[in-house]
């Protein structure tokens, strides 16, 4: 018998109990998902800024870079190329994938209030690896796209199709592997800033 047949036969021979499907579960949640998002993302070491509308994005990006004394260069994935970038003269845009010290913009189609999480389905115009290659990720999300729970995001995506890679990102990359003490920027971004568009 093949390993597959063998294993399945072994499971069928041994499985004894009948077990009913678990009841559905709804995690406790605060009333306001955006407020919860800001609170949790901040606790997870992300820097959150509220902006009024899309036109403020380029200026906000330029300010974030300046505040960290970083060069005014940002890597822009295809799905963010249509933003009104010209409103921030002096901010250079790169199309190539970012390196470990570079800043990159990322558009998050969904957020999760329960945990302050950004959800990024991979797509042709939204390469998944950018979320891990960059040293500084600047995420952009609309307030109305911040849902309460991970299950809500899954339901929205399942309504169309799940992408090959679905990344849930909460705060910058971190490790506690040396003396169980938090260090940010293990392999992925050292800094995560989130711009929430309120309009």
């Amino acid at each position: 018998m093949s390993a597959r047949e063998d294993i399945l036969a072994a499971i069928r021979a041994r499985r004894a109990k009948a077990v009913a499907a678990p009841p559905s579960y709804c995690a406790p949640a605060p009333p306001d998902s955006v407020q919860a998002f800001v609170e949790h993302a901040t606790r997870a070491n992300a820097e959150v800024r509220l902006i009024a509308n899309e036109t403020e994005i380029p200026q906000a990006v330029a300010e974030l870079l300046r505040a960290r004394n970083l060069p005014a260069i940002v890597h822009v994935p295809p799905n963010a190329s249509n933003l009104p970038w010209n409103s921030a003269p002096g901010l250079m845009r790169e199309r190539a994938a970012p390196g470990p010290e570079d800043a990159a913009v990322a558009i998050a189609p969904f957020g999760i209030g329960e945990t302050g999480t950004l959800a990024y389905p991979s797509a042709t115009d939204a390469p998944a690896s950018w979320h891990f290659r960059a040293g500084f990720e600047i995420a952009v999300i609309r307030a109305e796209d911040i849902l309460m729970r991970m299950e809500d995001v899954i339901a929205r995506l399942k309504a169309t199709a799940l992408p090959p890679t679905l990344n849930f990102v909460t705060g910058p990359s971190r490790t506690g592997d040396i003396e169980q003490t938090l260090e940010l920027g293990a392999h992925g971004p050292k800094v995560l800033a989130i711009l929430i568009i309120q309009d």
């Binding site: 999480t117 890679t165 679905l166 990344n167 849930f168 909460t170 990359s173 992925g188």
Partner: peptide, 13 residues
Amino acid sequence: DISSYVTVMNGPR
């Protein structure tokens, strides 16, 4: 409350 990264890996690209 959640780890920095949770990834749903759903087949090849």
